[in-house]
């Protein structure tokens, strides 16, 4: 592997931007995170040439994992084309020569994502890296990090559960829409990053390794393949994903591809009415292609 590469200005960068020592350190943290599912492993987060909060935590994971034959996909809120995703993809292309990028979930080996898990089920040969702004789900109930560590160690999540209790008391249901606290492998509860509830079940028994990187908070954690991931809930008030039924109780469909089993984004049209579209743009394209194929084929 040729470790050195050059950008257009002629400055030498290591393959993957990070030096090999930094990558090793991240990989060590990843291994520990896999060994202790859901445990937040501290690591020395590096300065990246972009502001923290723009996915630097996820990017460091991605850059430490990229090999020369990697096929990388970058998404932001389900879209491959948003400014953030495009910038990160360009950065990866620039600093990892030889690596190819794609928007097709089916083709990639490594996905860096913010706010979504692709609709297409991931496979054992894929790794998903999620960008995390706030790694600790206990931060809403306990300001002291020392105390939070003890609570995690003892799997003491009663105060988090009280939040859910109060939610049901006030609103008749659990209202958490994103960052739904999820118990991994029967012990540690994680903040699964700002994915919608829709994506939380995909963490459970996932074929792909799922990694979480928080750059600002300097934490890495993991849901290893085929690990139990249970959203916190009560035995008589179970966890539910978003409800996409309309007033008549019919499942809303994507206005573009017609899909009725994907997570939908809501848009307001020029005329003021609401319309819905797949949030996962690659999924939407796939459904559209499928529909055209079946239409084009002679019966």
């Amino acid at each position: 592997m040729n470790a050195m590469s050059h950008n257009q200005a002629g400055n030498a960068y290591n393959f993957g931007f990070l030096d090999e020592y930094a990558k090793k350190e991240v990989r060590r943290a990843i291994l520990k995170a896999i060994a202790i599912p859901g445990y937040q492993v501290p690591y020395a987060s590096r300065e990246m040439p972009m502001g923290r909060g723009f996915g630097t935590g996820g990017l460091q994971l991605t850059l430490s994992l990229i090999g020369p034959n990697e096929v990388v996909k970058v998404i932001d809120q389900g879209s491959d084309d948003s400014v953030n995703a495009v910038n990160l993809r360009r950065f990866i292309e620039m600093t990892c020569p030889g690596v190819s990028t794609t928007t097709a979930t089916a083709e990639c080996t490594l996905i860096q994502s913010r706010h979504r898990i692709p609709e297409l089920p991931l496979t054992a040969r894929q790794i998903l890296v999620l960008q995390v702004p706030y790694p600790d789900p206990l931060v809403v109930v306990e300001p002291s990090e020392d105390k939070r560590k003890t609570m995690h160690g003892e799997a003491d999540y009663s105060r988090l559960l009280v939040k859910l209790y109060e939610d049901i008391v006030k609103f008749g249901e659990i209202t958490i829409s994103h960052r739904y606290p999820t118990r991994i492998n029967g012990h540690y509860v994680i903040d699964p990053s700002p994915i919608p509830r829709w994506d939380v079940p995909k963490l459970n028994d996932s074929a792909a390794l799922i990694l979480f990187g928080a750059g600002r908070e300097k934490k890495i954690y993991a849901v290893p393949p085929h690990t139990k991931a249970e959203p916190l809930a009560f035995s008589d008030v179970p966890f539910r994903v978003e409800d996409f039924r309309d007033e008549q109780g019919r499942r809303r469909a994507c206005a573009r591809c017609g899909c009725v089993d994907s997570f939908l984004d809501e848009f307001v049209t020029d005329s003021g009415s609401k319309t819905y579209q797949c949030s996962d743009s690659d999924w939407c394209d796939m459904q559209l292609r499928k529909a055209r194929q079946t239409q084009g084929e002679p019966a």
Partner: peptide
């Protein structure tokens, strides 16, 4: 910062009672 019922719920949740109706 949590309701009277929530305060009691917290202690019940610590002892692993996980049924909302029963807790209430």
């Amino acid at each position: 910062n949590i309701s009277a019922g929530g305060n009691i719920a917290e202690r019940l949740l610590m002892s692993d009672l996980m049924d909302y109706g029963a807790i209430r």
